[in-house]
């Protein structure tokens, strides 16, 4: 299955959340890969702690593959090549976890040629043979990478795909996420242009809220009653706004709580970070774990 991760704005937590989902899915026993299609700022290597490709690879990554300069993009076995000691051994029963990094100094494309599209179709077809889940991290907004993903999936009727739209839990982000899907030149309109059926495509899109601070979170314990009441009211208004914009509970696949570790550093959260060093919150890992299951759970994707 192909899963496309997109967001209207940069800095929403799309890459960090996607990486953690991929990691959780691998721990759950699936063969997974992560494709960095954020050609302008390929940072996935840093999140997976593979320092040799922290800012993209110099050995021929996604960008050069699409340019047709290489036949096989650089692939990295994360279990073997991560710098984080605690991740280095693949636990028994866990699946493969492979990163296809972007190129250092790659840059966004300014057009999608037919050749690029064919390369994309070929790549997806091959990866689908090998991996249960291929997560494609697109850049923010209406990019050529997103156009290419829509066009390629329209040509691959046998390959299941899903879209995750990441947004933060604020007024502007809710409206922006709605616009990215429903707006002019949004995903649905562009998808229909590329030959998708609009309704079917809409059923394959879900939202993910990132870095959410619940009004009843432990972090807010010390607040005054008036502050709590105010936060509750804000949250109620946001929920109402989200519902009106079609970004509400029914079209949401999951939400990830604000986590202190992720606030400070883009990284995978391991069980060790929760259990032994206790720097990360158990709720965060539970949310990643849940999302990793729901991505492939058909009942979470029934038509709305």
């Amino acid at each position: 299955m192909l899963v496309f991760a997109i967001s209207d704005k940069g800095g929403t937590g799309r890459s960090v959340t996607s990486s953690n989902i991929v990691y959780r899915r691998a721990l759950q026993g699936s063969d997974v890969c992560y494709l960095d299609f954020d050609f302008g700022s390929p940072t996935a290597g840093a999140i997976f702690s593979v320092s040799s490709v922290a800012r993209g690879t110099t050995q021929g990554g996604m960008h050069r593959y699409f340019e047709g300069r290489i036949a096989d993009p650089h692939r990295i076995d994360i279990w073997a090549e991560t710098d984080r000691e605690g991740l280095r051994a693949k636990p028994p029963g866990a699946g493969q976890m492979v990163l296809f990094p972007g190129d250092e100094g790659g840059g966004e494309f300014s057009t999608v040629s037919e050749e690029m599209l064919l390369r994309c179709v070929r790549l997806f077809t091959r990866l689908e043979e090998e991996f249960d889940l291929c997560l494609v991290d697109l850049s923010a907004g209406r990019s050529f990478a997103a156009q290419m993903a829509l066009a390629a999936t329209a040509r691959l009727p046998g390959v299941p795909f899903r879209w995750l739209v990441f947004h933060r839990w604020t007024r502007q982000h809710i409206i922006a996420a709605h616009g990215l899907v429903q707006g002019r030149q949004g995903l649905l309109a562009a998808g229909v242009d590329h030959g998708h059926d609009g309704e079917t495509l809409a059923d394959h899109i879900r939202f993910v809220r990132t870095a959410v601070l619940e009004p009843d979170a432990a972090e807010l314990e010390g607040l005054r009653e008036t502050q709590k009441a105010w936060l509750n009211e804000c949250d109620r208004e946001l929920r109402e706004l989200a519902r009106r914009y079609g970004v509400g509970r029914t079209s949401m696949l999951g939400k990830i709580p604000l986590d202190p570790v992720l606030q400070w550093r883009e990284q995978l959260i391991s069980d060790e970070d929760v259990l032994s060093s206790q720097i990360a919150n158990a709720e965060t890992v539970a949310a990643f774990d849940d999302l990793a299951k729901k991505i492939v759970d058909d009942s979470a994707w029934e038509a709305l």
């Binding site: 689908e128 043979e129 090998e130 249960d132 046998g158």
Partner: peptide
């Protein structure tokens, strides 16, 4: 081909 392979495998 129906593309519904019974398991994933690498070439």
């Amino acid at each position: 081909l129906d593309r519904k392979a019974p398991f994933r495998s690498a070439r």
